[in-house]
Simulated assay, not measured.
Amino acid sequence: MLRSMLLAAAMANAFPALAADDPVPGLMKAADVPGLAVAVIRNGKVVSVKAYGYRDVEKKLPLTTDTVMYAASLTKAAFSYALMGLVDEKKLDLDASIATDLPKPLPDYDKYADLKGDERWKKLTPNLLLSHRSGFPNFRFWPPGKDFDDKAPLKFYQEPGTKYGYSGEGINLLQFVIEKGKGIDVDKLMQDRLFKPFGMTRTSMTWRDDFAANNTIGYDMDGKAIEHKQRGSVRAAGSMDTTIHDYANLVAAMVRGDGLSKATYATWLKPVVRIHSVQQFPTMGAPDSNDNDSISLGYAMGVGTFDSPRGPAFFKGGHDDGTNNVFVCLERSKDCVLIMSNSSHAESMFPALMEATLGKTCFPWYWEGYIPYDQPGLKGQPVVPNQHPACPAK
Rank of each mutant, 00 (worst) to 15 (best):
I171K: 06
K180S: 13
M190C: 03
L129Q: 01
F136K: 00
K122C: 02
D187P: 00
M84N: 09
V177H: 06
D101L: 14
L189K: 06
K91H: 09
I98V: 13
E89H: 09
P144D: 13
D95P: 01
P143W: 15
K123E: 15
G168L: 08
Q191A: 11
F139M: 09
L92I: 00
A72F: 00
R133W: 08
P153F: 02
D108M: 10
L102C: 07
S131N: 15
Y112G: 08
L194K: 11
L102P: 03
M84V: 02
G145S: 02
L102G: 02
N138G: 05
L129E: 08
R193D: 11
F176D: 00
D88A: 12
P137I: 15
S73R: 14
F156H: 01
K122H: 06
D192H: 08
L102W: 04
L194Y: 12
F141H: 15
K111P: 05
P144F: 15
K155R: 15
P126W: 04
K151M: 05
L102S: 07
L130M: 12
E179G: 10
G181M: 11
K146D: 01
L194R: 07
D108W: 06
Y157K: 00
E169V: 14
N138C: 04
S80K: 06
S73C: 10
Y157W: 09
P143G: 05
H132R: 09
K104W: 01
W142S: 07
F176C: 06
K111F: 11
A82V: 07
D88H: 02
L124T: 05
G117Q: 08
K155C: 03
A96K: 12
P143R: 08
D147S: 08
P103D: 12
S134T: 09
F139W: 14
W121G: 05
K155M: 04
D187V: 03
D118I: 05
K196F: 13
N172K: 06
Q158F: 01
P103K: 15
W121N: 05
N138W: 09
R120V: 02
L128K: 11
V186Y: 01
Y166L: 05
L130E: 13
D118R: 13
K155P: 06
F195I: 00
F195W: 15
